[in-house]
């Protein structure tokens, strides 16, 4: 899918200042193709701001964010390279799931057949014509994922994608992401649910207070999820001390 020699995501000194708050402070990391990376940090650590900078929604004060080798704003057909779910509820409640996807499909040049395929993939085809206001949180998460996948991207950026999913849904999501990565896709998942992350990811990027505090490969770590938890707590406690 991607040129193996280049990182798929490259955060270069990403800094964002909102008046007197530093939401991100010189964050540097790279993601290799075919990997799943957990993006960890306490609430307010800056995960959301960094994801938005990677996607061109928020302009960095200093630094540069590259996805698939380019600034997002410079990508010719960004949705064909990068898919993202940033919030669980970015829908007009008075519009049906199918129409939400159709409007996005028109904007990115995806076919109606692709809309149907994605509805089937996330198991929403039976309720696709219902208004989103009738959807549960888990259904909204799956609809968001369907929207992110419309353009057949090679990179997925997901913010708390398992939030609201039932255990079967979480299991499905894990399997899906694993297959996605095995086919060469790259995933960055922001989450604060460590146990969930530990079972899915190849590495974690940990930030706190807007700063990168560690990048850890899970195969370098002892093999139980507790060790990730221990490391995470130790690092974030040290960072805020």
């Amino acid at each position: 899918m991607t040129d193996q020699s280049h990182p798929v995501v490259s955060a270069r000194g990403l800094t964002k200042r909102y008046r007197d708050v530093l939401a991100a402070d010189g964050v540097e990391f790279e993601l290799e193709p075919g990997t799943i990376t957990g993006f960890l940090g306490p609430n307010g650590a800056g995960k959301t701001t960094i994801l938005r900078m990677l996607l061109g929604l928020v302009q960095p004060t200093v630094g540069e964010a590259l996805v698939v080798g380019h600034r997002y704003l410079e990508l010719e057909q960004p949705a064909r390279r990068v898919g993202a779910v940033l919030e669980s509820d970015d829908f007009d409640p008075g519009r049906s799931a199918r129409n939400h996807l159709r409007a996005l499909a028109l904007a990115i040049g995806a076919s109606r057949g692709r809309v149907q395929e994605m509805l089937e993939l996330v198991e929403l085809e039976a309720s696709a014509n219902r208004l989103v206001r009738t959807y549960s949180l888990g259904m909204r998460q799956r609809l968001g994922l369907a929207a992110a996948l419309l353009g057949e991207p090679e990179l997925l950026l997901l913010d708390e994608p398992a939030n609201g999913l039932d255990p079967a849904g979480v299991h499905w999501l894990r399997g899906f992401l694993r297959r996605f990565a095995d086919q060469g896709g790259t995933v960055l998942i922001a989450s604060h649910v460590l146990a969930e992350i530990a079972q899915t990811v190849d590495q974690v990027v940990i930030i706190d207070g807007g700063r990168l505090i560690a990048t850890v490969r899970l195969d370098e770590l002892a093999d139980s999820p507790h060790s990730l938890e221990g490391l995470y707590l130790e690092l974030t406690a040290k960072a805020s001390a």
């Binding site: 929604l57 704003l73 960004p78 940033l86 919030e87 970015d90 829908f91 409640p93």
Partner: peptide, 16 residues
């Protein structure tokens, strides 16, 4: 409406 409901995010991701 897009700003209120958050659909502005997917809209701008599709068309930056």
């Amino acid at each position: 409406g897009e700003i209120r409901h958050g659909t502005i995010r997917p809209t701008f991701l599709a068309t930056p």
